[in-house]
Simulated assay, not measured.
Amino acid sequence: MCRWLAYSGAPVLLQDLLYRPEHSLIVQSMHSTLGAEATNGDGFGVGWYGDGDVPGVFRSIEPAWNDRNLSELAAHLHSPRVFAHIRAAIGSPVQQTNCHPFRSGVWLFMHNGYIDGFHAMKRDLAMMVDPAFFSDIEGTTDTEMLFFLARTFGLEEDPQAAMARAVGAVEEAARHHSIAFPVQGTFATTDGETTWAFRYSSEGRSRSLFVSTDVSTLREQHPDNPMLRELSDDARLIVSEPLGGLRGAWREVPESNCILVRGGDLEMSPFEPELAAPVR
């Protein structure tokens, strides 16, 4: 599988976010403790929001622990909203266009998990993508296909409903191919202002997902922790696995739930697939 994190809050140096925690994403690229594989070395990607009209993206097929360009970039970039992903490929080639996060306009999207039977369903799913978006698909992954299905089903208007319809479309296609449990994973998307994260699998046994506790509460519990003093009150992290063992810092996202993070506000609600109307 893969590992990922989504950060929002006051601008943070990417180096502090990706390298500094005791169980950082860079450490997880070599020694994941909750992933299906301990090593996630089939490339990585970072997406961030800055001065441009669209987010910046840096993706590479190098292992995250061994990429000097990532280390150099991370030492100089600050951003208030960051997506980062380390990849363990399943089936699709190791190439830059298959590295997460994926970008379309102001949107970023990433995923840990897989669509079972994707090869058999690929044409069916591709035919559902709005022709206006189809030519923007660059890679060959199930994740990118799901992203553009979500765009097709209204990601810009209602991200949670769009993801419910996209996942529903995959499950409906899977039924025609006798695939019992097609969707597995945790997903995240953002427009630069709000982050949505989803934990869902057709089997009801999703990959791990955690969200950070309110920073002000953590400061009260751990007044001597220097890193907590540097974070803004509205800082939030959503992660595949905790970045450290600080007591009370993380809570697990329940199965079949969606998290919305806007500013310091966090909302959690049930997530279930919907049967989408055909695209015309």
Rank of each mutant, 00 (worst) to 15 (best):
V215K: 07
P131F: 10
S201E: 02
G50K: 11
S79K: 13
G168F: 03
N225T: 02
S240A: 04
Y49T: 08
E144T: 06
P93H: 00
R205H: 02
I238Y: 12
E220W: 10
E267H: 15
A6D: 10
D53W: 02
G204V: 08
N225A: 14
M163W: 11
A88W: 14
E156C: 10
L146F: 12
F134K: 14
R262D: 11
E72V: 13
F147A: 04
N66T: 04
N69D: 12
A126E: 10
Y114H: 01
I90K: 11
G9L: 02
V211W: 10
M145D: 07
Q221S: 11
I86F: 02
G117T: 09
W65F: 15
E220A: 15
D130N: 09
L5P: 01
L146Y: 13
A188G: 05
F102H: 03
L231M: 14
S208I: 07
L209Q: 15
P226H: 00
A197I: 07
I238V: 15
T141R: 02
T97K: 12
N40A: 15
R3P: 00
C258Y: 03
T186Y: 08
D116K: 01
Y114I: 00
H111E: 03
A162H: 00
Y200A: 09
Q95P: 06
H76K: 06
A161S: 03
G91D: 00
C2D: 07
I137M: 04
T39W: 09
P93C: 00
A126H: 15
A169S: 08
V170P: 14
W107S: 06
E171S: 03
I115M: 05
W48S: 01
A84C: 11
A36Q: 15
I137N: 09
Q15A: 08
D42T: 06
H176M: 03
I179E: 00
R205N: 07
D130C: 02
W65N: 08
D124A: 12
H222G: 02
D214P: 02
L246R: 03
D51L: 09
S202I: 04
K122L: 03
R68Q: 15
W250N: 06
S79Y: 01
G185T: 14
V167Q: 00
M128E: 10
D42K: 05
R219M: 04
H111F: 12
L275V: 15
V82P: 06
I137D: 11
R68G: 07
L209W: 05
W4E: 05
R205E: 08
R219G: 06
E172P: 00
D142Q: 01
V12L: 15
V94N: 10
T194S: 12
V170L: 06
H119Y: 01
A38H: 07
V46A: 07
F83P: 14
H100E: 13
D130R: 00
Y19V: 07
S24M: 11
S135I: 05
P242S: 10
E157D: 15
R175H: 04
R81P: 15
E72C: 13
R175F: 01
F83Y: 05
D53T: 15
P11M: 11
S208N: 10
M145Y: 05
G41P: 04
